[in-house]
Design a protein around this nucleic acid. Sequence first.
DNA 1: TCCTACATTAGACAATGTCTAAGTCAAGAT
DNA 2: ATCTTGACTTAGACATTGTCTAATGTAGGA
Lengths: 138, 138
Amino acid sequence: MSDLLERLRGRGWRLTAQRRVVAEVLDGDHVHYTADEVHARAAELLPEISRATVYNTLGELVSLGEVMEVSTDGRAKRYDPNAHHAHQHLVCSQCGTIRDVHPTGDLLAVLPADERFGFQVAAVEVTYRGVCPNCSAS
Amino acid sequence: MSDLLERLRGRGWRLTAQRRVVAEVLDGDHVHYTADEVHARAAELLPEISRATVYNTLGELVSLGEVMEVSTDGRAKRYDPNAHHAHQHLVCSQCGTIRDVHPTGDLLAVLPADERFGFQVAAVEVTYRGVCPNCSAS
DNA sequence: TCCTACATTAGACAATGTCTAAGTCAAGAT
DNA sequence: ATCTTGACTTAGACATTGTCTAATGTAGGA
């Protein structure tokens, strides 16, 4: 993720202070912030950053394939910087905690041809749901 | 689905006109309406039905396991009356059409124990994405 | 240093969903 | 058949999340 800014510059992006702080907030794996959470954390580094810029920047990062958009609950979308390694998500039904997980096998292959209805199937998203150790204990 | 009202009565539900029309709108498989779509169709049968009642009723049907909540796009949730037969969804990336599909094998089993992080994993939701024949053609 | 096209901003607006207080009614009790 | 009561419905305010616009600012090349 630290070379994200380099890649973006290579794509002709202007490196503004706002884009830098958004990238900084997303830095590190296992982070799944909502847009408003990204905005709140970015605003600690750059108080005058606006919501619109955060939304714009996140949308651009998704378009470029640098960040994954995840919606596990029908509420706010979450942004996952771990976009360069295929993975799925495991969500706690109680507290909402999200973990990146890696199922075995080919998840696309288990959809038979006669269940594809002529679609050109390109991708698959899997959400596992359960109760995390923390919530089990209490 | 036609015996849904019977099951609900058995659970102590009051059978109001509003609940009848919501059940009628959802009747039939392969239907994936948003709450507002359900409201619009219900209002054709019972013009004075309110949005709040539709939201309440859908929420209750979901709690009772009679209807599945599906959110394939991070926008409005959709309501799937085909809740008594396990299935997953195939979504057209262009027009948003949704089909019910049935992958083979045990989708839970492909998540190894060392990828469960102590969670008690209870369910799995899969969304396949691709382009439908209609959108491929045009 | 200057230009200018691209980026940012504040805030209005849109879409979806939730909540409240007041009125209505289904269904059991009489 | 009527009464009673607690569950149900309603209108509309409110909340959350996301999008858009017009004015202003600025990164980076000339």
